[in-house]
């Protein structure tokens, strides 16, 4: 399992290969990459700064990862989340799940992202071309997505 909170960018292929190259039990790898998105649709976003709570972030990500491993048969997983100032289109977050079969890999990847968005202490602040900056507000839809997973599948 790899969990990393870092400013540096990541390479999906490298991270995926790192999981699979020494484990022939892996038959399915799902990767999710989140990018910095300009929600204004007018290309007004200059940058997005990600702040986090050092210590708690790693603790929460580890707990979420352990929960995923309890619920699905995973051979391995990786979570990388970037912090600091990022430009539109840049990669923010990477989740990779590796399993023998696709179902577990798909579901676990979705679970990890849904819980990460509501349980990991990151905050986004957007700066736009007019020089204004504002904190991004949490979305009810993210809470709804996370709440779907409250009860493990029976």
């Amino acid at each position: 399992m790899k969990i990393s909170v870092q400013h540096d960018d990541f390479d999906v292929s490298t991270e995926s290969l790192r999981l699979t190259e020494s484990n022939p039990a892996i038959g399915a790898v799902v990767s999710f990459v989140g990018h910095v998105r300009d929600t204004s649709h007018n290309q007004n976003l200059v940058d997005m700064t990600l702040e986090h709570y050092p210590g708690m972030t790693e603790k929460q990500l580890s707990e979420i990862a352990v929960e995923a491993q309890k619920r699905w048969h995973l051979e391995d997983l990786t979570i990388i989340h970037r912090v600091g100032a990022l430009k539109p289109t840049e990669q923010i977050v990477l989740v990779i799940t590796a399993s023998s079969h696709r179902q577990d890999a798909f579901e676990a990847a979705q679970f990890l992202m849904d819980w990460l968005k509501t349980k990991a202490p990151f905050w986004k602040k957007e700066t736009t071309k007019d020089g204004q900056s504002q904190w991004v507000e949490a979305l009810d839809s993210d809470n709804d997505a996370a709440n779907k997973w409250i009860n493990p599948k029976t």
């Binding site: 990600l50 989340h81 977050v93 968005k117 990991a120 507000e137």
Partner: peptide, 10 residues
């Protein structure tokens, strides 16, 4: 103890 707004990562 930490105080903060609802989280917005990912």
């Amino acid at each position: 103890v930490a105080f903060f707004p609802p989280v917005t990562g990912g």
